[in-house]
């Protein structure tokens, strides 16, 4: 599904990712953990195609296609979804309108029929109920005035409606209380269908208590420095990242 080989990425001419390699198979959930500043968010933004994140060498192959050459909206239509660490507020743009426009833009790009208002509302209402979010959020501007937790849950609602092939979740657990964390984890688990793949970027192990990753990777100094099973996350939780930072320094 996703093959990243020796990826080097610079932001403002400063190299952040320094030879990152990662392979995520169909239906797998991989956790990427690492200390602050290790390049976790850069990985997310690079996969989603943010302008100022320049791939200087290496490759990203998604579903057999070269992701680097694709525009952000082409990536979305191809099935890449990034749940933002800090979801953006867009004043004046209605949440429901935005999500339906996004869904239909993707469907149009894929040559599929657009979803009408009635069916769209049915889809989005189900997701809202599952995430225990109030329907009134649909009428509000995108993320405007949402609490931190509501913003994160709104990302999961978007993911559920857009049904991507690959979801990258960038610290979706940060700032969530334990109940919200569980709701978000349930939302992710509902979408695990053996085909959809996930890259879960996180700082802490606690989200992984609910998600059961296939693999856990440790990102440090712009590279994957260690990979293993779920037990690696537990080890990091007890040992911290200190020894890795010292090693990569």
């Amino acid at each position: 599904m996703l093959k990243i080989k020796d990826l080097h990425v610079s932001v403002d001419e400063q190299e952040i990712l320094k030879g990152l390699s990662l392979e995520v198979g169909e239906g797998e959930l991989h956790a990427v953990m690492g200390p602050n500043g290790s390049g976790k968010s850069t990985l997310g933004y690079t996969l989603a195609g943010r302008d100022d994140y320049e791939v200087t060498s290496g490759s990203i192959e998604f579903d057999g296609e070269d992701l680097v050459e694709m525009e952000p909206d082409e990536r979305a239509a191809a099935g890449v979804f990034l749940a933002f660490q800090y979801p953006v507020e867009i004043p004046g743009v209605n949440n429901a309108y935005f999500l339906r426009a996004a869904l239909n833009a993707q469907r149009k790009a894929r040559g599929e029929e657009e979803v009408d208002g009635v069916n769209f509302l049915k889809m989005v209402r189900e997701s809202l109920a599952e995430l225990e979010m109030d329907e009134s959020l649909l009428k509000r501007a995108v993320n405007e005035g949402f609490s931190g937790g509501e913003k994160k849950r709104n990302e999961i609602v978007q993911m559920a409606v857009l049904q991507p092939k690959l979801a990258i979740l960038d610290e979706t657990d940060s700032g969530l209380d334990i109940d919200a964390l569980k709701l978000v984890a349930d939302g992710i688990n509902r979408l695990r269908d053996g085909k959809r793949s996930f890259v879960v970027i996180t700082h802490y192990q606690r989200l992984l208590d609910y998600l059961t990753p296939d693999k856990v990777h440790v990102l440090s100094g712009g590279r994957i420095v260690e990979s293993g099973g779920p037990e690696l996350a537990h080890r990091l939780e007890s040992e911290g990242y200190g020894h890795l930072e010292r090693a990569s320094a």
Partner: peptide
């Protein structure tokens, strides 16, 4: 730019994203 990227990451083309951003600002 951040808002525009957010919209494009959800599938809107640059032109669609710009139009929606402008609309959101202008409609208020």
């Amino acid at each position: 730019e951040g808002s525009l990227f957010y919209m494009r990451s959800r599938g809107l083309t640059e032109a669609e994203g710009l139009a929606l951003l402008k609309f959101g600002f202008a409609a208020e």
